[in-house]
Amino acid sequence: MLTELSQSWPWYVAGPLIALTMFILLYLGKSFGVSSTLRTSCSAMGAGKTSDFFRFDWKEQAWNLAFVAGAMVGGFVAAQWLANPEPIDLAASTVTHLQTLGIEKPGADYLPESIFSWEGLLSLRGLIMLIGGGFLVGFGARYAGGCTSGHAISGLSNLQWPSLVAVIGFFIGGLTMTYFILPWLLML
């Protein structure tokens, strides 16, 4: 059982389980959206002193902080008891593409450690990617009013046109980064 669970889960298992996550939250009377926890945390840390946007009863949203604390523990559980000894089965073309950009052993781990490590952070490339990238995720998600969970999963499931516009935006941004900016950034 554990050996089977330790292997990579196919899309047709993961997708339905993500939908199930959304349905459980709906049954519990809440909506599925992760990025709003960033706003809640800002508010809890006192950002309400600087902007109306953070002046709300953040305790109403504390359930979502419990949810993301769980998501963190889920990563720990998966690493401790369900770790996959095999590398990620990436498409050969992705592996070749990333190797030409100087990334060694794509798929050996979840992230390229040359960038996503404390050592990597100390390079110009690491600083831009971790700090700049994180900033864009936080800024963009709140500006768009949601992230992958809130728009791509919850919003599209509820046939919301604004969510489709947001998802199109996610792809315009993502494709621009992957095709035009990252090849240059990774070579820094």
């Binding site: 995720v137 963009g140 941004g173 993502g174 900016i181 990252l182």
Partner: peptide, 16 residues
């Protein structure tokens, strides 16, 4: 907001 915010989010999503 959805398009501009979405594009900014997408840039970050691919980067990190």
């Amino acid at each position: 907001r959805y398009l501009l915010g979405g594009i900014i989010f997408g840039l970050g999503w691919s980067m990190v």
